[in-house]
């Protein structure tokens, strides 16, 4: 909403969907979306730090409300992990907790009213652009899903051994006949490619679409009084619905993390 630009739908949406980029080196890759990184790291420190702070002061006696909240949260994640994963949960459960809580907090940034925040960034802090929702940045979702993907491969090899993993790549799911080696490998490659893609793009798509719909509604509201009369109730409905999406997507992302890592532990 820079004053010197003419406010058109394209410029409005484009303005809100642009990242605050910092160029680190030459080349298209060496750009850091500083808004995404700062927001997500800040939220991670708040979330994980809160857990740490509460757990450090935790008592094994009667817990206070704060501790009970954290215990409910941890217990919920642990139960989800227990249902899916049969084995030592000392890694998978805290990983799932981290993913779930972090994604939830990052998704929740979508609740911030985008134009008010924009005004604060611009007029309060002098930042022309700042994207609040890290999970609407494809970098974040891919970073998460690729990390999970690497963990998946790591656990596949750690549990089955390198030979076992390669054997599984070639001999499952169709059989160990040499004629089936190629189809098996292709099938597995598709699976290995599709898992991180679907994992990350599902979250990204939902959050990005959520933002866009808000932007479209506010654009309608910006068009005039009639537009505002229509846009405000619709935005309220969408905001309520969005609460569900935020929670649901964080939950799905966490569950898929558990599922993928636990699948890596199972041999076919």
């Amino acid at each position: 909403m820079a004053a010197e630009h003419e406010l058109t739908p394209g410029s409005y949406i484009g303005h809100h969907l642009a990242f605050r980029e910092v160029r680190v080196a030459e080349g298209p890759f060496w750009v850091l979306n500083i808004d995404t990184v700062l927001t997500s790291v800040g939220l991670g420190i708040i979330g994980i730090g809160f857990l740490w702070w509460v757990v450090r002061g935790a008592t094994s006696g009667v817990p206070n409300t704060r501790q009970a909240l954290v215990e409910v949260l941890c217990d919920f994640v642990d139960r989800q992990a227990k249902d899916i994963f049969h084995g030592d949960r000392r890694f998978i459960a805290p990983t799932a907790l981290t993913v779930g809580l972090w994604v939830l907090l990052m998704n929740s940034m979508d609740f911030l009213p985008i134009d008010i925040m924009g005004a604060i960034w611009e007029h309060g802090l002098g930042l022309e652009r700042y994207r609040e929702v890290p999970t609407a940045d494809v970098n974040t979702t891919f970073a998460l899903s690729l990390s999970v993907w690497l963990l998946m491969i790591y656990f596949s090899i750690a549990v089955k051994g390198l030979g076992g993993w390669i054997h599984e790549l070639f001999c499952t799911p169709f059989g160990s006949n040499p004629l089936l080696w190629l189809p098996n490998l292709l099938f597995n490659l598709v699976e290995y490619v599709s898992k991180p893609l679907s994992h990350s793009l599902r979250l990204f798509g939902n959050m990005y679409a959520g933002e866009i719909i808000f932007l479209l509604l506010w654009m309608m509201a910006g068009a005039g009084v009639v537009g505002a009369i229509f846009a405000i109730p619709l935005a309220v409905i969408w905001a309520l619905f969005h609460i569900l999406i935020v929670l649901l997507q964080a939950y799905i992302f966490m569950m898929l993390t558990i599922v993928y890592i636990s699948m890596a532990h199972e041999s076919h």
Partner: peptide
């Protein structure tokens, strides 16, 4: 675009985990 943010986020994620 995929850019350096990907790696930064990955590192942050690893630290949090």
């Amino acid at each position: 675009n995929l850019n350096l943010t990907l790696i930064a986020q990955g590192i942050a994620f690893a630290i949090f985990i």
